[in-house]
Nucleic acid binder design. Structure first.
Lengths: 371, 371
DNA sequence: CTGTTAGCGCATTCAG
DNA sequence: CTGAATGCGCTAACAG
């Protein structure tokens, strides 16, 4: 490993001069600077970030601590959004997967502190996530996707309440009355907000609320399958269901399939998170899509503004969701009865796919096209 | 930030003693040790990793540099496999996304060097990826998923040749004769090996090879859609297709859908990478599943053995794939003609899902269930 | 067993 | 404008 003093020696200057040339802050005689640059070239010198970080007391790296890496395209798009922002600003980014485990999350946050990162973008695993160590260490934090009580940091979230509410209102408008909801851990604001949107839409429509139709699951596929199976086992079975993330939706669809029920005749389904397979499923799946890429990119923007010295009070950015209406939530056919399976109704509805908003196309294209 | 000297002062000992207690290598008087531990507690002292890293000339962190974060469940499972291994061994892990961009990849490898990471697990973006800077810096490297010419490091890959070959052999056995292949960038060994498996299976079966049926795409959804559209526009259209990753498969299925063709009557399809939606598609999709979690976990194991001092010559671990036979590759119906769409054949085949190997279930369960 | 001392590689005072 | 000297926080020699 070549060090700054080797460069200094070769260029016939002091290490201080080399440092000045490399960081370009102060004025240096052009000729000396040229000699230094030559020496840097010749020796293929790379400054040691660790030493630099120790001296500077900060490291030009961001950490993105995500609570679950397995949320499919949603997660990946968020990451790319953050990364593009970080890259534009010249920051490398480390990604850490807390795997919904508060202990692991804390370990990574401690690591971020110990590594002197410049900033952290975090999807908190729950309300007990503690940001004070980071803040005490002078590290800027942005919360992405999930809020934290007390508004302790800049936050970027999707409009979960409206997203879920729109979906449920659409189901009700299409004639469904026993609308169930499979939601996630109460520790996450995404789950509670989506549940809130669901309940709100029922209330607005004057549809009676039935506690048995609400299931708390774990945002994982198995949990979604189990919750759906329970709902299908109910005396008074639901005729529609909103599932609040894509992995649980996969499980729910499997459970419906195993119960040999048809969508939407026996039960209508709307899933949260858009996925490319949605239109190609046996019954094309209606979804609530989230602006995943923008969520990440906006988080990067907020972090950057903090790193640039902005120190106003915490901001919250809420990004809109989009309802993608497809066959799985098609208008309820008159002849179908709420319970009993109604096998009489034959023939699947055409798999028409209607995007509720043109904005969604632009956003999807951006997220998909990249760069 | 509390430093080691503050701890030393409070405990009434020297910094060296504090260091010894914390690292537990040498013998220290139990009473002093207790005082130190108290002081550490009281001050909530956390060693500064940066300083430690500078002194030790190595940092107890792994870097996982992945070439594409958007490969859906495959990527996520690989990450979790590595991470579990790292975690068990007490190493935190940073994830870096090179996004198939050699420049970005190099930047991350340089960062890994500059950060003194203990080891790197890498999915090379192409054959020109240069490991020598890492090796010169004394950093252990393991290649995961993709090989690099020259066998410069321990490598863990899936058996792509056999995986693709099995799929094509199965298609041929089921009566398909014009089998196409949509493969990825020639820079990746995953793409070239899968293509090789495809060609090999054709040769073994004595089916003539048709250059027009092979398309190079980019492992992305759009690329898969475009390639499929081209294949469908051919005078002599293929009656089956192997698509070598799941994102291109999504695109290919969309293209088939847009062309209003039916699977498998008009064209049979097998995709690479298992996904939870596969059985729920309009025609349940046959897939070649890869042992993604094991790929990651085995990589971690190899890295760990290097960090533990093993210094034999580079090892290559090849993990088996599994063919999951579903309706999309069902035996060709006699009445269907290779070209012309054969609209006469009505009624979809039942969406039966048969797993070709019981091993696949165990592995899938492990990957899905976690921990 | 423990403290003192010396650097890891770098950026930044402070003199010149 | 430049160089010598200092120290970021920590661990490893080396004496005691």
């Amino acid at each position: 490993m070549t060090t700054i003093s080797e460069v200094a020696e070769r260029a016939g200057v002091s290490t201080a001069t080399v440092s000045r040339v490399l960081n370009g802050n102060e004025r240096v005689d052009p000729e000396l600077a040229a000699r230094v640059r030559r020496a840097v070239q010749d020796l293929n010198y790379r400054p040691n970030r660790v030493a630099r970080s120790l001296r500077l007391r900060h490291n030009g790296v961001w950490a993105l601590v995500i609570s679950d890496i397995r949320t499919g395209p949603f997660f990946a798009d968020v990451v790319r959004g953050v990364e593009d922002g970080a890259y534009e600003a010249g920051y490398p980014m480390f990604l850490c997967n807390a795997d919904e485990d508060p202990a692991k999350e804390e370990a990574y946050l401690q690591l971020a502190i110990a590594e002197n990162v410049a900033g952290v973008i975090l999807t908190p695993s729950g309300p007990r996530t503690d940001l004070t160590p980071l803040i005490d260490a002078g590290i800027s934090v942005v919360l992405a996707d999930r809020k934290l009580p007390g508004q302790v940091a800049d936050t970027v979230v999707a409009d979960n309440v409206t997203g879920a509410g729109d979906a449920v209102a659409h189901l009700i408008a299409n004639g469904y009355r026993r609308v169930a909801c499979i939601t996630g851990p109460t520790a996450t604001t995404t789950a509670t907000e989506r549940l809130q949107g669901y309940l709100g839409a029922l209330a607005v429509s004057g549809v009676a609320r039935d506690e048995t139709l609400v299931r708390m699951a774990d945002f994982r596929e198995e949990g979604g399958a189990r919750a759906m199976a329970e709902l299908l086992g109910l005396q008074a079975r639901p005729d529609a269901v909103l599932v609040t993330n894509n992995r649980m939706t996969a499980g729910a669809l499997r459970a419906i399939d195993e119960a040999k029920l048809r969508i939407p005749q026996d039960i209508a389904v709307i899933g949260f998170d858009e996925i490319s397979w949605a239109p190609l499923l046996r019954t094309a799946l209606s979804t609530v899509s989230q602006p995943a890429y923008d969520l990440g990119h906006e988080s990067a923007r907020l972090l950057l503004s903090r790193l640039s010295g902005y120190s106003g009070s915490p901001r919250t950015v809420v990004l809109p969701t989009t309802l993608n209406v497809r066959a799985s939530s098609a208008a309820k056919s008159r002849s179908a009865h709420p319970r009993g399976g109604s096998k009489a109704v034959a023939g699947a509805l055409p798999a028409l796919a209607v995007s509720a908003s043109t904005k969604s196309r632009a956003r999807a294209a951006r997220a998909a096209g990249g760069r």
